[in-house]
Design a protein around this nucleic acid. Structure first.
Length: 264
DNA sequence: CTGGGGAAGGGGCCC
DNA sequence: AGGGCCCCTTCCCCA
């Protein structure tokens, strides 16, 4: 992901799959009294159920509200598979810090200094510096250490191995773990209000983004943008070898993967 | 198999 | 600093 230069990725973070087929267990919790396809008009005016504070996660034993029937599940069945996170097994930690405007608790925001030569981490720069001398026994003076050894502060996510160079970026990321925005219709939870807003359109059928060329409408602006490419003779994404153009990068990737552009 | 649509995640920017 | 929006990207499903 080219734009995610702020995050240091240590592992292949395949996106969590929220497709319907993966939500069967969650769907089982949806009350029959809650229609999924429609929302009452009065609810449409303010359909968001985003809980930036601890309203529904106020305590370590707090359970999701009746409107948020998604209960914390085992890592293997969670939409956000946190099985790679050592802390994901403790359910009480799922409800703590990370709500949007809450100041992050110290146990969530860890200011950690990493050694670039081993996996050790330290809570202070001085401790790290002291440790790093062990990698260079012949050059104990800090000023003689290689330039890359200079430590940069890292904001660590408690729930996964990601680390960020800014606290704001980390806070934003943590929301993807805490999922404070809950759909009042189906209970599905999202990291940000506008994601929930887009999801609610799947219930209401609202499609505010219309194509001026074919009157087709979309619930998502990006999807409209991708659709507009289909009207274009020359599409945005071009194969470097055969000059074919594609409306989506994913189609170009598929095209390349199918062997049009074999590596020379 | 390919193209297109639907849904969603996430970082950056602006206010 | 935080929220909202923009934009890009990805994955899945279906025709």
């Amino acid at each position: 992901m080219p734009r995610s230069f702020l995050v240091k990725k240590y592992f292949s973070n395949k996106k969590p799959c929220y497709r319907e087929s993966h939500l069967e267990s969650q769907r089982a919790f949806v009350p029959e009294s809650l229609p999924r396809a429609e929302l009452p008009a009065e609810n449409n005016s303010s359909p968001l159920t985003c809980y930036p504070d601890s309203q529904f996660f106020s305590g370590s034993d707090a359970l999701p509200s009746p409107l948020s029937p998604i209960t914390p599940v085992s890592p293997s069945s969670s939409p956000l598979d946190l099985s790679s996170s050592p802390s994901s097994s403790s359910s009480e930690e799922e409800e703590d810090g990370g709500r949007s405007s809450d100041p992050p608790s110290p146990d969530i925001i860890q200011h950690v200094y990493h050694c670039l030569h081993c996996s050790n981490s330290y809570g202070s720069l001085s401790a790290l510096s002291h440790h790093q001398l062990s990698h260079f026994p012949q050059t104990p003076r800090a000023s003689s250490l290689p330039a890359e050894v200079s430590a940069r502060p890292a904001f660590h996510c408690k729930h996964c191995p990601k680390e960020y160079t800014s606290l704001g970026a980390l806070k934003m990321h943590i929301r993807s773990h805490t999922l404070p925005c809950v759909c009042p219709t189906c209970g599905k939870a999202f990291s940000r209000p506008w994601l929930l807003r887009g999801h609610i359109r799947t219930h209401t059928g609202e499609r505010p983004f219309a194509c001026q060329l074919c009157n087709r409408a979309f619930a998502d602006r990006s999807n409209l943008r991708a659709h507009l490419q289909t009207h274009s003779e020359v599409k945005k994404y071009q194969c470097g070898s055969c000059a074919r153009t594609f409306s989506r990068m994913s189609l170009l990737h598929k095209h390349n993967a199918s062997g049009c552009c074999p590596p020379s």
